[in-house]
């Protein structure tokens, strides 16, 4: 009850923090798509490179977020952005690579070889094959990777509050340090809700982007 009252009294603050949270995840995952999808496509050309890239991305994924912030801080301090928005975005960008690169790579390599053969035999150039056949067919799986990246990183961004990046984690960290259950619960609820809403919104986008001929 008290929590609800707190939420009602602080609606504008919660909204502000939510927007901040979305901005970190949105910008970082957006950049991750711009880098991860081309990398995922590029590594389909060479099995050994693909294995190496996926291995590195998997290792990044295993670094605890607090440790990653710790690593980024001294490096970024050289540019004067050791704490705050920038390290948060970079961390989320790095964590997003694995699901996006891996799903892109899997989706492209799983395109039926007969389609590739038909495309080649009909005289499509490699770019035409990619744009007109392989990418359209890979979209659902790539989007599934983006969804995973977004949901994971909405959670990770909550921790970025500790390096002053703002976002809904601010409520949680304050709740802990001030032993204020209301803030803690409100922050946790907001993060969970945001993850669920974002996942559904992306699922809808995924369906819209999937070519009609392959929609389930």
């Amino acid at each position: 009850m008290e929590t609800l009252r707190f939420i009602g009294d602080n609606a504008s603050l919660i909204l502000y923090l939510t927007v901040q949270h979305i901005s970190i995840v949105g910008v970082a995952v957006g950049l991750a798509i711009l880098t991860g999808v081309p990398i995922g496509i590029a590594i389909t050309q060479n099995r050994r490179v693909a294995d190496a890239v996926l291995y590195v991305a998997a290792i990044i994924m295993t670094i605890p977020s607090v440790a990653l912030f710790g690593i980024l801080m001294p490096v970024l301090s050289l540019t004067g952005h050791g704490i705050g928005y920038l390290p948060a975005v970079i961390a989320v960008l790095l964590y997003s690579q694995l699901p996006i690169i891996r799903n892109t790579y899997t989706a492209i390599t799983n395109v039926d070889p007969a389609l590739r053969e038909a495309a080649r035999g009909m005289g499509m150039r490699p770019w035409q094959r990619l744009w007109r056949v392989e990418i359209p067919l890979a979209v659902p799986v790539i989007m599934a990777g983006v969804r995973v990246a977004v949901v994971i990183n909405i959670g990770i961004t909550a921790i970025a509050a500790y390096i002053g990046a703002g976002g809904l984690g601010t409520l949680i960290s304050r709740g802990i340090s001030q032993t204020d259950q209301r803030q803690l619960v409100a922050g946790a609820l907001a993060v969970s809700l945001l993850a669920i809403v974002a996942d559904y919104a992306l699922l809808w986008t995924q369906r819209r982007l999937t070519p009609a001929g392959v929609r389930a």
């Binding site: 039926d112 007969a114 389609l115 053969e117 038909a118 495309a119 035999g121 009909m122 007109r132 056949v133 359209p136 067919l137 070519p211 009609a212 001929g213 392959v214």
Partner: peptide, 14 residues
């Protein structure tokens, strides 16, 4: 013209 056993029609196209 090229025709293969697996047909290879592009599923994303009409």
């Amino acid at each position: 013209g090229y025709v293969i056993q697996q047909i290879g029609l592009f599923p994303n196209m009409t």
